[in-house]
Simulated scan of single mutants.
Amino acid sequence: MDELKHIDKKYRQVALLPDKERIAFIKQKRWVGYPVALNAIQELKALMEQPTQQRMRSALLIGDSNNGKSSIIEKFCEAHGQPVVDEDEILNKPVLVTEVSAPKVKDIYISILEEFWAPFKTTQTESQLRAQSFELMRVCGVRMLILDEFHTLLAGTAQKRTNALAELKMISNKLKIPIVGVGTKDALSVIRDDPQLQSRFWVMELPLWKPNTDFARLLSSFEKALPLKHKSNLASKEIGERIHTISGGNLGNLHELLKICAIEAIHNGKDKIDLDIVESFSWFTPTRGQRAIKLT
């Protein structure tokens, strides 16, 4: 196995599998930890564990589309928000993750109830949906509410947005829980006109990667998880800079680029990602404009 020492020990056996199985492994979603993401998870943990007070500190987790926000939330929930059914058969759900699509108060509560698989009628009033949601969150011990696609609250009229934000403020105040908004940088505009919310929502921004030593370390981490039989030297200056240019420093783009490059390396028999393979996918920019599938 010495010839596979460029791969992490837990993945070396995968490199010995047939090509079809190796490709299936490459296509799987995989977490690669890096300092910014790990720090964000720690900040979310501290936010959830803050002392109960009238004005609970909340946060916005913002960044470009496909730049790792959802993976961070997923990893945080795996570590600190796993639902558990206690001996009395009561669901304990410390972290509630839901998605908003518009600044509509009823829709916010409906999305909360859907996460609990709770029965409700769309004809119920706002106050009825609110009471039902509050009761479930109290009984199930919700300690943090995470709202994905937070930037969509910009849709609709200013009055609807004001009403939705006032509702979120009430949820935080009444239940004494922090709220985390997750979205693009437009999420900052959601709270722009409310000084109280601005002071309550601390901002965590996931930056795009720069072509530096941190990016080189990230490439090395990815290479250790790819079941290729030969070392690719992704962190080398020539290959690393080209990968950065094509991916734009976007983590999701980078991950998908390395996937298709690794699969091509298996198909063409090289079993390593070299500059020629990287160049052959220079068109690959899935989060810039329309997504394309190259057929020739």
Results as ranks from 00 to 15, higher is better:
residue 1 M to G: 10
residue 4 L to H: 06
residue 10 K to T: 13
residue 11 Y to Q: 03
residue 11 Y to A: 05
residue 12 R to G: 01
residue 12 R to D: 07
residue 20 K to Q: 14
residue 25 F to V: 12
residue 29 K to P: 11
residue 33 G to V: 13
residue 39 N to T: 10
residue 41 I to W: 10
residue 44 L to N: 15
residue 46 A to K: 12
residue 50 Q to E: 11
residue 52 T to G: 09
residue 55 R to A: 10
residue 59 A to Q: 09
residue 61 L to S: 15
residue 65 S to E: 11
residue 70 S to L: 08
residue 72 I to M: 09
residue 74 E to W: 09
residue 78 E to Y: 14
residue 78 E to Q: 15
residue 78 E to T: 11
residue 79 A to F: 08
residue 82 Q to P: 06
residue 84 V to C: 07
residue 84 V to K: 13
residue 85 V to A: 04
residue 92 N to A: 06
residue 94 P to D: 10
residue 94 P to G: 11
residue 96 L to V: 04
residue 100 V to K: 07
residue 102 A to S: 12
residue 104 K to M: 11
residue 104 K to N: 13
residue 108 I to Q: 03
residue 112 I to V: 14
residue 112 I to D: 05
residue 113 L to R: 05
residue 114 E to H: 07
residue 115 E to R: 15
residue 119 P to F: 08
residue 122 T to H: 13
residue 126 E to C: 08
residue 127 S to I: 15
residue 128 Q to R: 12
residue 135 E to S: 14
residue 136 L to N: 10
residue 144 M to C: 07
residue 149 E to D: 14
residue 150 F to H: 05
residue 152 T to A: 10
residue 154 L to T: 03
residue 158 A to Y: 15
residue 160 K to I: 06
residue 166 A to V: 08
residue 167 E to C: 06
residue 170 M to Y: 14
residue 174 K to F: 11
residue 175 L to R: 00
residue 179 I to G: 07
residue 179 I to S: 09
residue 179 I to E: 08
residue 182 V to L: 03
residue 185 K to W: 12
residue 187 A to K: 03
residue 194 D to P: 07
residue 194 D to W: 12
residue 200 R to L: 03
residue 202 W to D: 07
residue 203 V to S: 05
residue 204 M to T: 07
residue 205 E to N: 01
residue 208 L to H: 06
residue 215 F to Y: 01
residue 219 L to P: 00
residue 228 L to H: 01
residue 229 K to R: 09
residue 233 N to W: 04
residue 243 I to K: 00
residue 243 I to P: 00
residue 245 T to A: 15
residue 247 S to A: 09
residue 248 G to W: 04
residue 249 G to E: 00
residue 253 N to W: 00
residue 253 N to R: 00
residue 260 I to S: 01
residue 267 H to F: 04
residue 271 D to A: 04
residue 271 D to F: 00
residue 273 I to A: 04
residue 279 E to R: 10
residue 279 E to N: 10
residue 280 S to T: 01
residue 282 S to N: 06
residue 285 T to M: 06
